[in-house]
Amino acid sequence: MASIKEFQVTFDCAEPVRVGRFWCEVLGYVGPAAPEGFESWDAYDRSLPAEQQGSWFACSDPTGAGPRIYLQRVPEGKVVKNRLHLDVRTATGLVGEERVRVLEAECERLVALGGTRVRLLVADEENESCLVMQDVEGNEFCLD
């Protein structure tokens, strides 16, 4: 039996386009291409019936290495802590104060985009420091 090599990460959210554009900026991903006959994704979206406008968005790694991120509108809001979260590998290989400086700098950039800083988890005997954040709808992720 062949193993699956590709996967997609799906977010349930209230505003897929807003959340998707945030993640494009975080990860250096790109949004969906304009479908044939449309000058842009936004022009395509505006052509849909009102109830379907803004109902989904997809982000892709332009290099093809990372997983696709799909965002879909759902009626209910986030109520509890995520059971799954993304670790954004910002400071791989760095330790100590240098690692924290890099994490803090990326945190500042993401806060300017609408993200929220939650807390810095400082290094211990087993783990290096990481910074817990939330995206524009409160989904938790870590700068690692």
Rank of each mutant, 00 (worst) to 15 (best):
E15P: 02
P16G: 14
R18Y: 05
R18S: 07
R21S: 07
R21I: 11
W23Y: 09
W23C: 06
E25T: 02
E25V: 02
E25D: 11
L27C: 04
L27N: 02
G28N: 05
P32A: 06
A34F: 11
F38E: 07
E39G: 12
S40R: 01
W41T: 09
W41P: 01
D42Q: 01
A43L: 10
R46E: 04
R46Y: 06
R46C: 01
R46T: 00
L48R: 06
P49L: 03
P49Y: 05
P49Q: 06
E51P: 02
E51L: 10
Q52K: 14
W56R: 14
F57M: 01
F57H: 05
F57N: 01
A58Y: 08
S60N: 12
S60P: 12
T63M: 03
T63G: 12
G64Y: 00
G66R: 14
P67K: 08
R68V: 10
R68C: 13
I69Q: 05
Y70G: 14
L71M: 08
L71S: 04
Q72S: 13
Q72H: 10
R73I: 13
P75E: 14
E76M: 12
E76N: 10
V79Y: 03
K81I: 01
K81H: 04
N82S: 10
L84R: 08
L86P: 09
L86I: 13
D87C: 01
V88N: 03
V88S: 01
R89L: 09
R89K: 11
T90V: 12
A91T: 07
A91I: 08
G93R: 08
L94P: 01
V95I: 14
G96D: 05
E98C: 03
R99P: 15
V100M: 01
E104V: 01
E104N: 07
A105F: 05
A105C: 03
C107H: 11
E108C: 02
E108K: 07
L110K: 00
L110T: 06
A112P: 06
A112F: 02
T116D: 12
R119E: 15
R119W: 04
L120W: 03
L121P: 00
L121M: 12
L121N: 15
A123V: 06
E125T: 15
